[in-house]
Computed example of a mutant assay.
Amino acid sequence: MSKLIRVLAATTVLPGAALAVAAALAHAWAGRLPDPVATHWHGAPDGATPLGLFAGVCLALGAVVTVMITTTALTALRRGRPLPRLSVGMGAGFAVLPPAVLLSVLVPNLDVPDWHAARSGAVVLFFLLGTVAAGVAAGFAGGFPAPVVEDRAPRPSVGL
Rank of each mutant, 00 (worst) to 15 (best):
V13E: 11
L86G: 08
M90G: 06
G142Q: 01
L74N: 04
L77M: 14
A26P: 03
A24D: 01
A23C: 11
W115P: 02
A10Q: 10
M90R: 14
G43N: 01
V132H: 02
A73G: 05
V148D: 07
F94H: 08
P34I: 04
R85S: 01
L103E: 02
L86Y: 03
L59Y: 08
G62S: 07
V88K: 11
F140A: 12
F127R: 00
F94A: 15
V88C: 13
A134H: 10
R6G: 01
G89R: 08
I5G: 05
A63V: 08
V105G: 09
P45C: 07
D114F: 06
F144A: 14
F126Q: 01
T70F: 11
A24T: 05
H116W: 11
F140H: 10
L125A: 13
A22E: 00
G89P: 08
G130N: 12
K3S: 15
P50N: 03
A30I: 04
G121A: 14
G52L: 03
D114T: 06
P34S: 03
V132R: 12
G135A: 10
L125I: 11
A137Y: 10
T75P: 01
N109T: 07
A118Y: 09
G130R: 10
P98N: 06
L97G: 00
T66E: 07
A117W: 08
G139M: 09
V158N: 05
L110T: 09
D111K: 12
T12E: 01
A24W: 15
V88L: 14
F94V: 04
C58W: 08
E150N: 02
A20K: 05
L77R: 12
P84A: 04
M1E: 02
L83G: 13
F127S: 00
S157T: 14
L4M: 04
P99N: 00
P34N: 14
A63R: 06
T75Y: 04
A146P: 00
T71C: 14
G16W: 05
L4S: 06
H116K: 15
S104L: 02
V136L: 15
S87F: 13
G31S: 12
F140M: 12
A10Y: 08
P145I: 00
P45F: 07
V57Q: 13
D46I: 09
A48Y: 06
V101G: 00
G135D: 12
L61V: 15
R81Y: 09
H42T: 04
S104H: 02
G52R: 06
A9G: 06
A28T: 03
V136P: 06
